[in-house]
């Protein structure tokens, strides 16, 4: 159930590896979505992106 530490560092169990993989994929999708959102909204706002909020 638990990972263990040996002379090669921390060794993950298969369950821990699967959990880490799912988290990594979710983070990648979220960041990719954020990039797309900014790109699309830049097109939507047009020249208004140059207006400072303050």
């Amino acid at each position: 159930m638990n990972g263990h530490k040996d002379e090669n560092g921390v060794v993950l169990t298969e369950a821990q590896k699967r959990a880490r993989r799912s988290r990594s994929i979710a983070i990648a999708l979220a960041l990719g979505g954020l990039v797309i959102l900014f790109y699309v909204m830049t097109l939507v706002k047009g020249p208004a992106v140059l207006e400072k909020p303050f």
């Binding site: 638990n2 990972g3 530490k5 921390v10 993950l12 821990q16 699967r18 988290r23 994929i25």
Partner: peptide, 16 residues
């Protein structure tokens, strides 16, 4: 062996 932070078992569903 010293103590170490247990690698997480949390998946996306837990964070949701």
């Amino acid at each position: 062996m010293g103590a170490y932070a247990e690698p997480s078992l949390a998946d996306v569903g837990d964070y949701v």
